[in-house]
Design a protein around this nucleic acid. Structure first.
Lengths: 355, 355
DNA sequence: ATGAAAGCGCTAACAT
DNA sequence: ATGTTAGCGCTTTCAT
């Protein structure tokens, strides 16, 4: 391994000068710097980040802890965040927590606290207090934090919420839906939805808003909620839930699905029951995963702008890391910030649009 | 930050003793070790991996360089490899190279050589010589290495090849297919296929084998190759290729698709042309990505056993890392090894089976 | 403008 | 059975 000393010797200067020159410190005379650079290139020198990190206390690695890596949505997240990190000269260590409290805290113990300057985290079982303890003072950015805005303890970036789902619901109504069932959410009143801050609650708020404003508009007919069909956000759960619902006599002409995986399962279940999408039932989902474009029928969706989300998450975390590095350890610092990722409603065949 | 010295002081021993005790070195008396452990717990001590790494020259991080992270197949790879690494106390740094030579070598320069003890790599543009230079002596395990077995310079684990595709083709024939077109592969003779060692060539070899053995069996009719429809392995490319082929008068009653994403696009394209799967055309793919179970119709596939693949890749790389650590630097060491991941043929609706 | 020197926290000879 | 010591490669005062 070629070290800074080798370069120093080659260039006829001291290791300190090499260190400065390599990072473009203005104190080094241009000609000297040039010598150093030449020597470094000649010897194929690369910094040893481990040594640098030991010295500086930073690793340049951002942890990314998600419930599961093998899902189209999380794969998009990993991809977008890795790209954006790369652009900033950072690395990403992705972990899966497996929906368990144990898995989540293990990630902090074994990974974040060891390797990472900070962590982007989709929490499910850990409270803010748990996180405060586990994070050991390192920054955390939450993905879709579910604590009420007033009680937030961490920066967070939110994916599609009320606004996106309101537009989705309006699209369904515009296409003639009159009885819209919600798939993938527990029954909730508009008041409850507004009081809670889970992803589901935020999305349902948009659903209720659309319904409410629709009924006050001068359309001849008006749409109504045709019930809640709770299920986990997997295609399998969605499929069986829909089959049971249809066999149980549920009546709806449209399905608002909480995610795209749910809408894929829904279409599959509807097909199993001999129902046609979009003729008998219109379907829309949320997330904007890639495969929605190629299913039969193609699926309408509220697509998260993953690049925007990644950018926001990294802005948030790097600003915290920098703040800590510049010695604001016990400083109260910036208050927790909440950012929302952009989205686009994509209209496809499942709501009666073009493929 | 609490260091090994703090623990030493608390336990009334030397830092070295703490280091030994913490790693269960038998030289330390049990009672002493107990004292140390208690002190460490009391102070919430955790090793500083950066320091440990600087000292030992290992990081416990495995690089994973794939052309693209946001694909169902690669997401499965990331997930399985991360899980398996976790089980072995290792971390995974996933990177996307973006199909470019530049991206591939950048990963080595910026990531692997800095952070990783070794890299699991899906190469496309780099030659063995390039890799030898870039790897700087750190182990590399290739995914689906395309160099001929006799010229292999690295360990590799192969995904589905001839065997899996032979079984897939046989399934198609058993279901009555007589004119099987191949989607996602360039035209190739059986001899060419056997001489090349790309994923495509290995798979085509299986296709030709099935065709050849089928014609010598006592079936009344015999299947034949109905042409090659080259396209990249994306749903979009598959879809447009199929549409063009059908409009151009191509005649086939079955499609052997090189990947599942290709078969998803194929079904979509066939549907666009008013053809039905499996009635008009039977379709099978390769990979075993999750979403094939929920499409309409559900897709038959040759499913890679991702866990098995991950296990094999990590066995390979850890054995190399350990060999290097135990001082066999310039040793010729083990010759390059080739392992093949297990697979299962899954029969679903697209070949006329159950959903 | 550059160099000397002191560590960052840990491990592994080597000494006791 | 445990302690002393010498670094791993780098950055960063502090001298010169």
């Amino acid at each position: 391994m070629v070290t800074i000393r080798d370069v120093a010797q080659e260039a006829g200067v001291s290791p300190a000068t090499v260190s400065y020159a390599l990072r473009g410190d203005p104190r080094i005379r241009p000609e000297t710097a040039e010598q150093v650079l030449k020597a470094a290139r000649k010897l194929h020198y690369t910094v040893n980040l481990t040594a640098k990190n030991l010295r500086t206390g930073r690793t340049g690695i951002i942890g990314l802890a998600l419930y599961e890596l093998n899902l189209p949505y999380t794969a998009s997240l990993v991809s977008a965040i890795t790209n954006e990190a790369d652009r900033r000269g950072l690395q990403v260590l992705a972990q899966q927590t497996g929906y368990t409290r144990e898995g989540e805290s293990a990630v902090f113990r074994n990974v974040t606290n060891q390797f990472c300057d900070g962590t982007i985290f989709a929490a499910s079982h850990l409270s803010n207090d748990d996180l405060l303890t586990l994070s050991q003072g390192k920054p955390i950015v939450l993905l879709d934090d579910r604590t009420p805005p007033s009680e937030r303890a961490f920066d967070t970036v939110l994916s599609v919420g009320a606004e996106g789902v309101r537009e989705a619901t309006e699209l369904l109504m515009r296409q003639g839906a009159r009885r819209i069932a919600v798939l993938g959410a527990d029954r909730m009143s508009p008041e409850q939805a507004r009081g809670l801050h889970t992803v589901t609650a935020r999305r349902l708020t948009g659903f209720f808003e659309a319904l409410a404003s629709g009924s006050s508009s001068p359309t001849d007919e008006t749409a109504e909620a045709a019930g809640f069909l709770p299920c986990t956000w997997s295609s399998e759960a969605a499929r069986t839930t829909i089959i049971d619902a249809v066999r149980g006599g549920a009546r709806f002409d449209a399905l608002l699905c909480m995610t795209d995986l749910v809408s894929m399962g829904a279409v599959r279940g509807l097909t199993d029951c001999g129902l046609s999408v979009p003729d008998d039932v219109k379907v829309i989902g949320v997330d904007g995963i890639h495969e929605t474009a190629y299913t039969v029928p193609s699926l309408s969706t509220v697509a998260v702008d993953f690049q925007d989300l990644a950018r926001k998450a990294l802005d948030l975390i790097t600003s915290r890391i920098d703040a800590i590095a510049s010695g604001e350890a016990d400083d109260p610092g910036l208050p927790p910030r909440t950012l929302t990722a952009d989205f686009t409603v994509i209209e496809r065949e499942s709501t009666g649009g073009q493929g």
